[in-house]
Design a protein around this nucleic acid. Structure first.
Lengths: 243, 243
DNA sequence: CCGGAAACATGACATTTGTCATATTATTCT
DNA sequence: AGAATAATATGACAAATGTCATGTTTCCGG
């Protein structure tokens, strides 16, 4: 079941901008830590693959090298919820899952072509044991993620659909957006369905709200090319009373 | 603004059952790590106090010793959301907040009388740098918390009010409940308002749903004494289609 | 460049949840 | 014990969102 195509464990240096400055990797690159760097393997995935699925046993610690990965949880009834879009440099499965034997609490799937660096459970554990610096980086990362999800939970608990969607757009624009004449073009392909899964509403609701946003010139485009035109307004909308 | 009454940094050994077995503390208790144990100070709080507030600078790493603490986030408009009820043994502010200078992303307030162990930012950092075991414990804890919040986010995103409430009751019964003839009595005082803040609905909605649950003999009692009578049924209800 | 599948769109209607007003019952404080 | 306050309760109505049905547009593989 595991990955698909595996490239040789090549020195991970030829990469994207956003990938250059990963504290954890910089630590690994220091002279006396090469042993771990050599344990890092690279795996490639494409549309339709799974990096791992909810319920699978956790065997690797991962770092996104190129592309974006979405973390999805599904409920018994088959409904799905996308918890996070990981970008190059993001770590995943740093968590408990990799220590105790528990299975993956969610699914990781590539959004387009993706390459990922992996470290076996054992090597990861050794790394942390022998390199406090590395452990501290992981703690920082996990802490940041925890805050992030808590913020997200707050939004899900308290905000209306349009506010949640506004928050999402702001977030993605800031994290993946590239400046254009018209605003920020998102660096991810994102259907209304995807958005619906991220903010916990139905596709129809997202379509209606996006239509409204479009009319207000806050956004434009579709899945293939989504542009956030008025970030400030969306930001305000995310925290404001009704409409 | 900080704490209220501070007891002498007394050897933290006289504690609750659930407090006996904290991996992180056991590590601190090992002979050569006494230096950190001595840095631990104990602080007491009562109803109405704040351990820290959203926006305050983060200065300490904390461990709950006795009592329960709730983590709350509030939105600009004044609405509140309770993200987590911490029990003895729970760590808080392990997170990024303690490293970079960012302020607390939420408020921590005691539910009744509480005592908390604290370690200064600096000592905490030293501890992690010098003791990989400690760092790994923190990683495990953060990982578990991250999974927890993600599960919670999924519930908030996908489930109806009654399902969310059922999940909450199951969760609290399992974590704080004490077996009684009628079922599990919750170890926390919990008003309908509190529950509302935890599942992201209004107090009225919780009242109505609880009334229904009461009629179905799933629960009984009120804030002061809440008993979960039919755990299995509630568990099922948390994942089932309408009613 | 054509055909099928996604993605996007819209309306009518049902359901869920929120809002506000007003009681009633418990708890707490003195 | 009695007053004040907090917690629980209930109804009528409004607003937000889901559901289903159906149609149009866009995208993609052969």
């Amino acid at each position: 079941m595991p990955p698909s195509k595996l490239s040789p464990p090549d020195e991970p240096t030829t990469s994207t901008d956003s990938f250059r400055n990963i504290p954890l990797l910089n630590i690994l690159r220091e002279p006396d830590r090469r042993e771990f760097l050599e344990e890092l393997t690279e795996a490639h995935y494409g549309k339709g693959d799974y990096i791992f699925r909810q319920g699978d046993p956790a065997e690797y610690f991962h770092i996104v090298k190129q592309g974006t990965v979405k973390c999805v949880k599904s409920s018994p009834e088959g409904k799905e919820c996308t918890l996070k879009v990981l970008m190059p440099g993001d770590l995943f499965c740093c968590e408990a899952a990799v220590f105790d034997g528990s299975p993956h609490p969610g699914t990781a799937q590539p959004m387009g072509d993706v390459s990922v660096l992996r470290l076996s459970k054992k090597a990861y554990f050794d790394l942390l044991r022998k390199n406090p610096d590395a452990a501290i980086e992981v703690i920082k990362y996990l802490g940041a993620r925890l805050n992030e999800v808590q913020e997200q939970a707050k939004i899900l608990a308290l905000d209306r659909a349009d506010q949640r969607l506004a928050s999402l757009l702001v977030n993605l624009a800031e994290r993946t957006g590239v400046k254009e004449s018209q605003g920020f073009r998102l660096g991810v392909r994102l259907t209304r369905q995807d958005m619906a899964n991220m903010v916990g509403v139905t596709t129809e609701t997202v379509i209606r709200i996006m239509a409204r946003f479009k009319k207000l010139r806050l956004v434009s485009g579709n899945a293939a090319r989504l542009v956030v035109r008025d970030l400030a307004h969306l930001k305000h909308m995310a925290v404001a009373k009704p409409s």
